[in-house]
Computed example of a mutant assay.
Amino acid sequence: MNMCRTEELVMRHIDAFNAHDVDALLADFAPDAQWTTGDYTVPAGELREFFATAMESITPQLTFRRLIDGGDVVAVELTETWTHGGRDRTASLVAIFDLLDGRITRSKIYREGSADA
């Protein structure tokens, strides 16, 4: 996957996330994609519920910082903002995406601090 297509995929993913458009967000995932954030791995087949619940409860937003393209593996540095308990929160994070045929097959999210603190 070339840099242009990779960056397009990542930006489409971020835009769908920020629009809370679960259908658009899931369109770039392989059907059996794995998503891990912190120590939690979303069970197979539950990505839709995971994202829908998160987007309703904490209204997260991502800001793109930079992308490191390793071909089939991409690292993306982001800033995430969200609301929890009526308070605005911000954290830096890195998302590692494994890619195959233009789709995300595996994601691992590394976040500074806690998503709910």
Rank of each mutant, 00 (worst) to 15 (best):
1 M>G: 05
1 M>F: 01
7 E>V: 01
9 L>T: 00
9 L>V: 01
10 V>E: 01
10 V>N: 00
11 M>V: 02
12 R>P: 01
15 D>N: 10
22 V>R: 02
24 A>V: 06
24 A>F: 06
28 D>V: 11
28 D>K: 02
28 D>A: 08
31 P>M: 08
33 A>G: 11
36 T>P: 05
37 T>Y: 06
37 T>K: 05
38 G>L: 06
38 G>H: 06
39 D>H: 09
40 Y>I: 08
41 T>V: 05
45 G>Y: 08
46 E>R: 15
48 R>S: 01
48 R>G: 01
50 F>K: 10
50 F>T: 04
52 A>Q: 12
56 E>Y: 04
56 E>D: 14
56 E>N: 08
59 T>K: 15
60 P>K: 03
61 Q>V: 06
65 R>W: 00
68 I>W: 04
69 D>N: 07
70 G>C: 07
70 G>W: 03
71 G>T: 03
71 G>A: 04
73 V>F: 00
75 A>D: 04
77 E>D: 09
81 T>E: 09
84 H>A: 15
86 G>T: 09
89 R>T: 09
89 R>M: 15
92 S>K: 14
95 A>T: 13
96 I>E: 13
96 I>K: 12
98 D>P: 06
100 L>P: 00
102 G>W: 13
104 I>H: 05
104 I>A: 09
106 R>P: 03
107 S>L: 14
108 K>G: 00
108 K>I: 11
109 I>E: 12
109 I>S: 07
111 R>A: 13
113 G>M: 08
114 S>Y: 05
116 D>M: 13
116 D>W: 14
117 A>T: 14
